[in-house]
């Protein structure tokens, strides 16, 4: 997993509530058995005017000029500003993979769907929850100022605006530690392998009916 320490970048505003994971990466791209390369199909149904397929040559496809991602002023964006319940719907991890592969490093929204929120953290993508009035203010500032950038400092838990004004945010201590150090969850859990084995032995004794082998 990539480390996340300080990220500064252009902000892209996606002013829409309940953006679901189908919106982020449509189902036909889930047929891939790989973990990378989803960035060109991020927001596919809104970004292009035709229907994308896993084997399409995306460079020749007609772009939807009205979709925010295609507007020249937002090219190279690294921070996504979004609305309520971002990432609802299917549990596909292809959604954070696509956002990350496109170049996003952080998402700021008033609320996120649970599974998506978790999936982001496991892929070095930082989801930040801020109160609604602050989000509305950010939308207005981004709209009004071309080239609007924010700096996100995970260690200090601070977002710095272009004028130097700061906004603090909450983050789970454990997740912060993992992101700052780029730690892999499995390695961490296996440090507790003995505790898992002990639990398992006791549980097998107490509830043997859960241990019928599937075969």
């Amino acid at each position: 997993m990539n480390k996340f320490i300080i990220e500064k970048g252009l902000v892209l505003p996606l002013d829409r509530a309940n953006v679901d994971t189908d919106f982020i990466i449509p189902k036909q791209f889930l047929k891939s058995i790989k973990r990378t390369g989803f960035g060109v199909n991020l927001f596919d149904e809104h970004r292009y005017l035709d229907k994308g397929e896993p084997d399409s040559d995306n460079s020749n496809r007609p772009l939807n000029p009205d979709f925010v991602l295609n507007q020249p002023r937002y090219q190279g964006a690294r921070i996504l500003l979004a609305q309520d319940n971002f990432g609802c719907g299917s549990s596909r991890e292809h959604a954070p993979w696509a956002l990350e592969d496109y170049g996003f490093r952080a998402i700021i929204a008033p609320s996120f769907a649970d599974i998506f929120f978790n999936n982001c953290l496991k892929n070095g993508l930082l989801p930040i929850v801020l109160p609604k009035p602050i989000i509305s203010g950010l939308f207005a500032e981004v709209e009004a100022n071309a080239g609007y950038q924010l700096e996100v400092d995970l260690d200090l838990q601070l977002i710095t605006k272009p004028g130097g004004e700061t906004i603090s945010f909450e983050v789970d201590e454990f997740r912060k530690h993992c992101l700052l150090n780029g730690l892999d969850d499995i390695g961490l859990t296996l440090e507790d392998a003995d505790a898992i084995s002990q639990f398992e032995a006791a549980w097998r004794n107490q509830a043997p009916w859960y241990f019928t082998a599937m075969k």
């Binding site: 719907g89 596909r92 991890e93 599974i115 999936n119 499995i186 859990t189 296996l190 898992i196």
Partner: peptide, 30 residues
């Protein structure tokens, strides 16, 4: 798969998870 919640109908605690967690559960049973 997010619709894993279905299994709760039988009094099981059932969660949908992402692919990193699929790998995590395979490797650690946790």
């Amino acid at each position: 798969d997010s619709h894993t919640s279905t299994h709760g109908a039988l009094g099981a605690l059932a969660h949908g998870i992402g692919t990193s967690e699929v790998e995590h559960v395979l490797a650690t049973q946790c």
